[in-house]
Simulated assay, not measured.
Amino acid sequence: MKPPCSLARSSLLRIPTTPQPCLIRQCPTLRPSPLPSASLLRSRLCLQQSRRTFLKPSTGPSYRAVENLNVDRIRAESQNYYVRRRNFLLLGAALSFTAALGSGYMLVLELTKPKKFDSGGAVPDPFSTEAGSKRKTVVHDAQGREIVPTGNSTVPTFPRHLELSTGGGHTAKEQLDGGVEYTLVGLGVRTVSFLGIQVYMVGYYIATPDIAAIQSRLVKEINPIATTLVANEKEELRQALLDPQRGEALWSAVLADVQPRSVFRIVPVRDTDFHHLRDGFVRAIQARSSQGEHRADYADDAFGVGMRDFRALFNRGRVPKRKEMLLCRDAAGRLTITYDDGEHGNAVVGTVDEERISRLLWLNYLAGSKVASEPARTSIVDGIMEFVERPVGTVATQVL
């Protein structure tokens, strides 16, 4: 039998609605007093159940979850949670994609950035008027030939000199031998689209015996009585060559007056074909022949025939990467295209006698507001600066 106090306590837990005098008489510690309300007892019970002890953690009342259960509210909270979660995931995915795209774009810009052709230190040049000028890095391959690094992994080097036998020599010996040495002036990579996709490496070569005439013409353009240019005059010439209008006029005068023999060496860095190269060349020629006040100079039938002959030269197949194509311009302005497929040697593809075709094609790399390869144009201008800082006539014997 339970003690009277226990009975009274259990009776209180059952929340009696009327006083029980028998229990009060059996338990003298109880005093007749008004019984607490049901809500007050319930709050006391919750307080006792939630009281934390050393060995028992506090636990909340279990009946509250049942009393506060609201299916609509729970559904709304669950939906809001998953909506917020989805939005955060979409935001994270968008930021990750943007970061990856930006990193890839910066990587492409870094890989396609034109490389400086120097050895990293200032090498004194006995022919230079400036102290501490830098020369292009020239190394030797296994056969002992001089080569110039390009900064491209697919086409790592370009030869410093080319020996061509396409004819058109100025002297009787050159016309008899048919072999002319060409010296590299500058090179760069041709890219397309905003992603900077590399297409081919291009290098500009000038016949070594014709460099002195180009030196003289460019020096006289800045200082008519000078044989070399000093620092401020070199900077003036550089700005003139980089200016779209003045640079195009200056190079047009050089090609018309000096008539230097020159070559553009093109080596693809990815597999392409003749039709793709032809489309780029034709678009550049047509764009330059249809703009400006001189477009009437290219409206005659002879120019149209020259364009037709030029297109016909490229009715061929594939051009694998690392294969060499040469665009050669002789003293008369005749264009000769050669191609080395790696099996039959450097063979002539064909010629175009119309001088304006080769002139516009050359200007597409050398001058204007938009050139085929800005790194190549900048490198060519740097090479020209190395020419004009030396006395006229010394480059042919001490090239670069």
Score class of each variant (00 low, 15 high):
Arg217Ser: 05
Gln291Asn: 07
Gly196Glu: 04
Gly178Leu: 06
Asp271Pro: 03
Ser128Ile: 05
Gly179Ser: 11
Asn223Met: 10
Pro375Lys: 02
Arg44Lys: 13
Leu255Cys: 03
Gln286Val: 09
Arg75Phe: 15
His294Phe: 13
Val399Met: 05
Thr18Ala: 01
Leu69Pro: 07
Arg160Ser: 06
Gly121Pro: 05
Gln398Pro: 08
Ala372Asp: 08
Gly350Glu: 01
Ser62Val: 14
Ser33Tyr: 09
Ala99Arg: 01
His140Cys: 11
Phe54Gly: 14
Val185Leu: 08
Leu107Gly: 09
Pro57Ile: 10
Trp251Cys: 03
Gly186Ala: 02
Lys113Thr: 03
Lys220Asp: 11
Thr18Tyr: 02
Gly167Thr: 04
Arg270Glu: 06
Gln26Pro: 00
Ala122Asn: 12
Tyr82His: 14
Ala376Leu: 09
Val371Ser: 00
Asp353Cys: 02
Pro114Ile: 03
Pro268Tyr: 06
Lys173Glu: 01
Ser37Gly: 14
Ala76Phe: 15
Ala212Tyr: 06
Leu7Ala: 10
Gly60Thr: 14
Val108Tyr: 09
Pro149Trp: 08
Ala65Thr: 13
Val180Phe: 01
Cys27Phe: 03
Gly144Lys: 05
Asn346Gln: 15
Arg329Asn: 11
Ile266Met: 04
Ser39Asn: 11
Ala93Asp: 06
Gln286Lys: 07
Leu363Thr: 05
Leu23Asp: 07
Leu89Cys: 12
Gln215Val: 06
Glu374Tyr: 09
Val155Glu: 04
Ala122Thr: 10
Asn152Thr: 07
Asp300Ile: 04
Gly151Asp: 03
Pro61Ala: 14
Leu45Glu: 10
Phe194Ile: 09
Glu110Cys: 10
Val230Phe: 10
Ala93Thr: 13
Leu250Ser: 05
Tyr82Phe: 14
Thr112Arg: 04
Lys113Phe: 07
Gly188Val: 03
Gly167Leu: 03
Ser262Val: 00
Tyr204Gly: 02
Val395Arg: 02
Leu109Met: 08
Leu47Gly: 14
Leu107Lys: 08
Thr53Pro: 04
Leu47Ala: 15
Arg283Lys: 15
Ala100Glu: 11
Gly179Gln: 13
Thr166Asp: 07
Ile266Gly: 03
Val192Phe: 01
Arg246Pro: 00
Lys136Ser: 05
Glu293Met: 15
Gly169Pro: 02
Ser119Thr: 13
Arg288Asp: 00
Arg238His: 10
Ser39Glu: 13
His276Ile: 08
Thr129Lys: 09
Asn315Thr: 04
Thr208Asp: 01
Pro320Arg: 11
Leu218Arg: 00
Ser193Trp: 00
Ile380Lys: 01
Ser165Thr: 11
Glu110Asp: 12
Ala253Lys: 14
Thr227Gly: 12
Phe264Tyr: 06
Leu242Gly: 12
Pro124Tyr: 09
Ser133Cys: 05
Gln239Cys: 12
Ser37His: 11
Ser379Leu: 00
Gly247Glu: 02
Gln286Asp: 02
Asp341Glu: 11
Glu389Asn: 10
Lys134Gly: 08
Asn223His: 13
Ser133Gln: 12
Asp340Arg: 04
Val254Pro: 04
Arg51Lys: 13
Leu90Phe: 15
Leu23Trp: 09
Ala284Val: 01
Val185Met: 01
Val123Glu: 15
Ala142Ile: 13
Phe387Met: 12
Lys321Glu: 05
Arg261Tyr: 01
Phe264Ala: 06
Asp297Tyr: 09
Arg288Thr: 00
Asp297Phe: 10
Ser165Val: 05
Gly368Pro: 03
Glu130Pro: 01
Leu327Asp: 04
Gly333Val: 06
Ser193His: 02
